[in-house]
């Protein structure tokens, strides 16, 4: 059995770790609140723009934008992967990567190649060892990402789509259900899959200014950026809540360990005292 002093140092070190994890939990909790607010604040934009895209799908337009056309045979797909910059957030990133890898394997089985674009250090570190070609990288966004930061990354992938290098583009991120649940999600960006709108008929079209191509391009690019941005802010909210929960269970586990070790320590101490007493008694008896 370990000596009393050894156990005492062990208990002290676990208590130190516990202090750190509980501080991290509290930091994550307050950051989560802010991240959730940002996520909610950006929802009106992406909701409205999805609604307009829905209208657009019903418009009887002469001009068909390439992003809205069904692509022919798919030979290569692009995936924008959103992850966190930091670790210590439970299985958040790993779950996303695992479900993505499954999909990538499926694609490869069908002879479809995959190009990726990573946002966040974790995805970059993970995917550069998978042999997939990384087209663009974006890291160090912090807790409050700016819309501007995304433009370059999204443009790289859209340019590839325009040039016909990829025939499909998706974004993968963790969707924020609630504090306890984060769902790895893959959403197709182009070609677009528009939702249904009730009560809309097909016999009308917009007046486009300055012309259909310019107006539609401007709208569709914003739509794609809005979806990626929404994914990014949701992923940040997920990261913080996942970290909060991971740190909470770490703190609880540390508490359990300290309790167990204290029990062992007390037993060891008691055994030492008993031994000492019996030594004294037997010594006294010998005299």
């Amino acid at each position: 059995m370990a000596s009393g002093k050894e156990i005492r140092t062990q208990i002290a070190s676990i208590k130190n770790t516990q202090k750190i994890t509980s501080a991290m939990e509290m930091v994550a909790a307050s950051k989560m609140k802010k991240a959730q607010n940002r996520m909610l604040a950006s929802r009106p934009y992406s909701d409205k723009i999805s609604q307009v895209i829905g209208h657009l799908a019903y418009a009887h337009s002469e001009f068909k934008h390439p992003y809205m056309k069904e692509a022919g045979e798919v030979k290569r797909v692009g995936i924008i992967i959103i992850s966190s910059d930091r670790g210590l957030c439970g299985g958040l990133n790993t779950n996303l990567f695992r479900s993505l890898l499954k999909q990538v394997v499926q694609y490869q089985a069908q002879g479809i190649e995959v190009d990726i674009c990573t946002i966040g250090k974790k995805a970059t570190a993970f995917f550069k060892n998978t042999g997939l070609s990384i087209k663009s990288v974006l890291t160090d966004l912090g807790d409050a990402p700016h819309f501007d930061d995304l433009l370059g990354t999204v443009k790289v992938m859209l340019d590839a789509y325009d040039a016909g290098e990829i025939q499909q583009l998706s974004v993968a991120y963790n969707k924020f259900e609630n504090t306890m649940t984060q769902v790895p999600t893959v959403t197709q960006l182009v070609p677009m899959v528009a939702g249904e709108v009730d009560g809309m008929e097909h016999h009308w079209d917009y007046i486009y200014e300055p012309d259909a191509e310019v107006a539609l391009s401007a709208l569709l690019v914003r739509y794609i950026e809005a979806l990626v941005y929404q994914g990014l802010v949701e992923n940040i909210a997920c990261e913080q809540s996942s970290r909060m929960i991971a740190m909470k269970s770490a703190t609880d586990n540390a508490g359990d360990m300290v309790q167990d070790l204290e029990l062992v320590y007390n037993k060891a101490r008691q055994a030492a005292i008993t031994q000492e007493i019996s030594e004294i008694v037997s010594g006294a008896a010998a005299v």
């Binding site: 657009l56 917009y206 007046i207 486009y208 200014e209 300055p210 107006a215 539609l216």
Partner: peptide, 8 residues
Amino acid sequence: KHVALLST
């Protein structure tokens, strides 16, 4: 009741 329009 403006006609449907999309503009930058």
